[in-house]
Design a protein around this nucleic acid. Structure first.
Lengths: 183, 183
DNA sequence: AATTGCATGTAAGGAGTTACATGATTAA
DNA sequence: TTAATCATGTAACTCCTTACATGCAATT
C-alpha cells in the first residue's frame, strides 16, 4: 500500500486527547480504535521520531512510578497539521475482500464451498454484532469521556453495527439464493 | 500487509473460467472484480512466473492476430490448489477506515469538520449505490455467463449494495446525531 | 498523424507486519 | 516464581503501487 501516510495523522490525532507514550498509543490502537484502524510498534516508534524532527510533537522523559518513559505532546504546529488533514475529503483505500473472491470463484467450484463459506461468515458476523453492541453500550456509559467524545466514538461504532447488520442480511439472502433451483 | 499470499489464488481463480494472458487478467481485475479485489501489473507478471515454476499453470505462446502473447492455463494441480484455498475459512484482513478515523478525532476538532466529512461521504455513497445497482442489472442480463456465474457474480455485487445502503443509513443517522443539542 | 488499447515486463520505493532483543515492574 | 504487562526499539521481510521502458496494432 504505497503513499498513504495516514499513520502520521493517526498518531497526531490520538495525541489530541492528551500526552501519551508510544506504548500507550499502541495500546489505544489495539483496545479502542481497532475496529476501524490499526498501527503496530514497527510503525509507531519510527514515526514518532519523524514527527519529533518535523516539530509536530514534543518529547518529555518522565520517571513515572520508577519506570522511565517518553511522553509525547502535540504542538501547535501538529494540531494545525492534523486539523488540515481531517478537513480534507477522506480517501477510501482499495477494498480487498477475500470472502467475496472465494464466493465469486465459487461458480467454478463444488457448490458446497460457497455455502460453507457464507455459513461460517454468518456465524462470525452474528457474534461480532453482539460484541459491537456491547462496545456501544460501554461508550455511552463511559464517564471518563466528554459528551462530544462519547458522541463521536459512538458514531464510529454505529457504522460497524450497520455494516455488520448488512453483512448478516446479505449472508441470509445469499444462502437462500443458493437454495433456489437452477433454470 | 505481510503474509497473505492471496494474489496467487486470485490469479488461479481467474484462470478457472478459461485460459488468459497476463494483460487479460489485469483487465479482468480492473473491469470485473474491482469492487472487491485489486491486482496490479507489478504483482501479476512476477506471480505468473512463480505459478509456472510451481506447476500450477502452464504457458502457451500464441501469435494471435499477428500480435504475440502468452496464454496461461490452469493445471490439474493448480485447480486442486485453488479449491483447497477456497474451502478454507476466509480471513478478514485488518480494516482501515480513514473516514472513521477523522470522525473519531472530530470530537477534538472544530464541529464543522465531521459534518462536512459525513456529508461528502453520503454524496459519494449515493452515487456509488446507483452504480452498483446498474452493475447488478448488467450481470443478470449477461448472456455470455452461465446461470451459476450470474448467480455468484450477483451475490458479490449484492454485498456491495447492502453495505452501501448501510453506509447511507449511518451517514443520515450521524448527521442527525450531530444536530442534537448537547446535554 | 495521433491517440488509445494491447502486451510484457522491471525498478524503486513506500507501507506494514512479525519477530527479535532487552529489561523493569507487578500481580497471581 | 512465573506470567503478564509496561516499555522501547530494530531488522528482516512481504506486499503492493507507481513509474518507467518498450513496441506493435487499430482506430479516429
Amino acid at each position: 500500500m504505497a503513499k498513504s501516510g495516514t499513520t502520521k495523522f493517526a498518531i497526531l490525532g490520538i495525541l489530541l486527547a492528551g500526552p501519551q507514550s508510544g506504548y500507550e498509543i499502541a495500546k489505544f490502537c489495539r483496545e479502542v480504535i481497532s475496529s476501524f484502524w490499526s498501527e503496530s510498534y514497527g510503525q509507531i516508534y519510527p514515526k514518532l521520531k519523524e514527527l519529533l524532527d518535523e516539530g509536530l510533537i514534543k518529547k518529555k522523559d518522565v520517571a513515572a512510578s520508577k519506570r522511565k518513559k517518553s511522553i509525547y505532546t502535540i504542538t501547535a504546529k501538529g494540531r494545525k497539521s492534523v486539523e488540515a488533514w481531517a478537513a480534507e475529503p477522506a480517501v477510501s483505500q482499495p477494498v480487498r475482500n477475500e470472502l467475496l473472491l472465494k464466493v465469486f470463484f465459487g461458480s467454478e467450484l463444488p457448490a458446497e464451498i460457497s455455502r460453507q463459506q457464507i455459513q461460517q461468515a454468518l456465524a462470525g458476523q452474528q457474534s461480532e454484532l453482539g460484541h459491537l453492541k456491547a462496545v456501544e453500550r460501554e461508550i455511552l456509559a463511559a464517564d471518563d469521556l466528554s459528551q462530544r467524545q462519547r458522541r463521536h466514538a459512538s458514531m464510529t461504532v454505529r457504522l460497524g453495527v450497520h455494516l455488520m447488520q448488512a453483512r448478516i442480511k446479505w449472508a441470509k439472502e445469499s444462502l437462500a439464493s443458493l437454495d433456489e433451483p437452477s433454470d
